[in-house]
């Protein structure tokens, strides 16, 4: 099972902070996972469409759309960071 995490404005928009997901076999990259999540309904579609600025990390390292993912990974989605 992959662990998915959502932070800040994205967490609020989806009304969800985390979930366990058994990754379908045909999902092997971040981009494919985003496409999959976008099919879950209007809020998800708005959050995961291409023009939404969303950052992603895989196992707590910043990742890109073409980064590989597997069923054992911790994958987090979040808006641009605003610390400091």
């Amino acid at each position: 099972m992959a662990k998915l995490l959502y932070f800040a404005s994205l967490r609020e928009a989806l009304d969800k902070d985390s979930e366990q997901l058994s990754l379908p076999a045909d999902i092997t990259t971040v981009a494919q996972l985003k496409d999959f999540l976008a099919t879950r309904g209007a809020q998800w579609q708005a959050a995961f469409t291409e023009d939404a600025v969303l950052l992603v990390s895989v196992n707590q390292q910043m990742a890109q759309a073409d980064s590989a993912i597997s069923d054992a990974d911790e994958i987090a989605f979040f808006p641009p960071v605003t610390g400091g």
Binding site: F7, A8, S9, S57, M62, A76, F78, P79, V81, T82, G83, G84
Partner: peptide
Amino acid sequence: LMDYLKTQAPFWKK
């Protein structure tokens, strides 16, 4: 350190 943490560390302000 300040410049980098503002753009790379996962913090969010509300």
